[in-house]
C-alpha cells in the first residue's frame, strides 16, 4: 500500500480480484460501507459473496486490490484472521458453527470481548462484569432458558441465534452475517430481521442473503453481485426494477 488512503468508509474495497485456477471468483470488486450502515448483499450462487467475506476476514488473500478498514487505517490484506477479528470485524458463517460440546454460556464466554492471548486466558476468572454482559446477551438472543445446554443440542434456528449472539459478544465495529435465515421458519426469519435491525443501532452490518422477502424486511441499501463484481446498487425496489438484475438473478 502506498501510504494510507483517505476514506470515510468503515470498509473500503476497490479493484479486488481473486481467482482460483483461472476462475475469477472476484473481478475488480468495489464496495464502500459507511460507519453505522447496514447493507444487504444479494447475488446468485457463484457471484462471489462468500469469497468477498473470506477476503475481508483474512481467510483468502486477494490477487490485486485494496481492502481497508476503519477509515483506511488498516490494510486487511496484510493481516491474519485473529488480528482482523481483534480489530473489530466479526463473522457469522453460512453453516452455523458453534462449539458443540460447550454449553451455550461457554460459547458466549469464549466470544466475549477480552484479551485473546494465552496467559491472560489461562488466568482469566469469572467477574460480575462478565456475568452482566452475558445476561444482556442472553436477553438479546433469547436463549436464557438454554444457558447450560450443550450447544450441540440446540435446534438449527437456535444455533443461528447463538452464533449471532457470539458475534455480538465480540462487540465488533462491523458484523459480517452470511445467510442468517437459511433453514429458518417464517416467524424466525421475521424475528431475525428485527434482531439485526436492533443490532444495527450500535453496529455496522453486512448481510449476505438469498431470501428476498428477508432483504425487503430489512429495508436497507442492496448491492447485487454477479460474476465477482457489482451489478447494481440501490433500494430493493430500484434493484428489482433493474433489467440486468432481473436477467441474471431475479428473473430466473
Amino acid at each position: 500500500m502506498n501510504g494510507p488512503k483517505t476514506t470515510e468508509a468503515l470498509l473500503y474495497l476497490d479493484g479486488v480480484s481473486v481467482s482460483f485456477d483461472g476462475f475469477k471468483a472476484l473481478n475488480q470488486l468495489a464496495l464502500l460501507i459507511a460507519p453505522g450502515e447496514m447493507r444487504a448483499i444479494v447475488g446468485p450462487n457463484g457471484a462471489g459473496k462468500t469469497t468477498m467475506m473470506d477476503v475481508i476476514t483474512g481467510k483468502t488473500r486477494p490477487d490485486t486490490g485494496d481492502v481497508l478498514f476503519d477509515g483506511g487505517q488498516h490494510d486487511l490484506t496484510r493481516l491474519d484472521e485473529a488480528t482482523i477479528a481483534e480489530l473489530g470485524i466479526g463473522r457469522k458463517f453460512q453453516k452455523p458453527t458453534v462449539f458443540e460440546s460447550h454449553t451455550v454460556e461457554d460459547n458466549l464466554r469464549l466470544a466475549l470481548k477480552a484479551p485473546r492471548s494465552v496467559f491472560p486466558t489461562l488466568t482469566a476468572r469469572r467477574t460480575a462484569e462478565e456475568k452482566a454482559r452475558l445476561d444482556e446477551l442472553f436477553a438479546t438472543v433469547k436463549l436464557g432458558s438454554q444457558r447450560n445446554t450443550q450447544a450441540g443440542g440446540l435446534s438449527h434456528g437456535q444455533k443461528q441465534w447463538l452464533e449471532i449472539g457470539m458475534l455480538l459478544a465480540q462487540d465488533p465495529a462491523l458484523l459480517l452475517v452470511d445467510e442468517p435465515v437459511a433453514g429458518m421458519t417464517d416467524a424466525e426469519t421475521f424475528e431475525t430481521a428485527e434482531l439485526l435491525k436492533r443490532i444495527n443501532r450500535t453496529h455496522s452490518v453486512v448481510v449476505v442473503e438469498h431470501d428476498m422477502a428477508f432483504v425487503r424486511e430489512l429495508g436497507v441499501k442492496v448491492t447485487v453481485l454477479h460474476e465477482g463484481s457489482v451489478l447494481a446498487e440501490g433500494t430493493i425496489d430500484q434493484v428489482s426494477a433493474d433489467q440486468r438484475v432481473v436477467e441474471v438473478y431475479l428473473g430466473r
Partner: peptide, 8 residues
C-alpha cells in the same frame, strides 16, 4: 471458528 473469534 476459534480463529475468527480472534484466538491465535
Amino acid at each position: 471458528r476459534t480463529r475468527f473469534i480472534g484466538y491465535r
